[in-house]
Design a protein around this nucleic acid. Sequence first.
DNA 1: GCTTGACCTTCCAGTGACGGGAAGGCCTAT
DNA 2: ATAGGCCTTCCCGTCACTGGAAGGTCAAGC
Lengths: 129, 129
Amino acid sequence: MNIGDVATRSGLPAKTIRYYEEIGLIKPARDANGYRAFAEADLHRLAFLARARALGFTIEDCRTLLDLYNDPDRASADVKHVAEEHLARIDDKIAQLRGMRDTLADLVQACHGDARPDCPILKDLGAGA
Amino acid sequence: MNIGDVATRSGLPAKTIRYYEEIGLIKPARDANGYRAFAEADLHRLAFLARARALGFTIEDCRTLLDLYNDPDRASADVKHVAEEHLARIDDKIAQLRGMRDTLADLVQACHGDARPDCPILKDLGAGA
DNA sequence: GCTTGACCTTCCAGTGACGGGAAGGCCTAT
DNA sequence: ATAGGCCTTCCCGTCACTGGAAGGTCAAGC
């Protein structure tokens, strides 16, 4: 399989696949002409990465998870630990965004949004001085 | 005021303040020795920026908002428009994170987290092949 | 055999919004 | 004179890619 086929089948851009090789997440073989020659196992790893990235895991998390995935003697506790930390980061992020969202929604609500210059949004932003 | 005082009073790191000058958000005067000499108006702009950034506005949004803030002939509709677009971006982000969070929470819930290798998290991630 | 076009390769630069750290100048107090 | 705490600029690193240039390869059609 060339990179184009793998890109199609994994849903990842070719650029991203090359990047993953560069940082050592995959190590596809090479044909005589220098083209990358992907095996099914490479595709499997890429599918794993695509799924993990879609869940928001960092690249370093992905590296750890792939190692655990390929270690038959892993402890599920190690996997769970990585996932729980990530979950906590996501919860923090959501809470932060919700805070912003609520404030913003109030301000937008209060703004007439017409041709006049009076604006509670700007008033709020400039209130610190 | 030197940059250290302004950093303390605005809550922004000195590095950030220098960066804001570099990208043209503020234009503090200079003393004869080359030190930045901040006026109250500069501090006011920085407080505005700190507040806008805390609400998640991008730097480019901040530039626009500052321009509107300093334009007595602005239309509040323009401000509201910027804020509404930002609000929509935040809502998208929250929805995306909530999707991740729900899936992750299910997986974490299902994982025993003990010394055994069986792990629904890894099973899910590897399920694509 | 030649051209065309779709592949593939590497390398370099840019993204957003800073942060770290080096090398060096300035200012105040002792 | 020296110490230390400011300040300056400059350059590199972050994260996970993305875009684009310059050039090699391959299969199809004429």
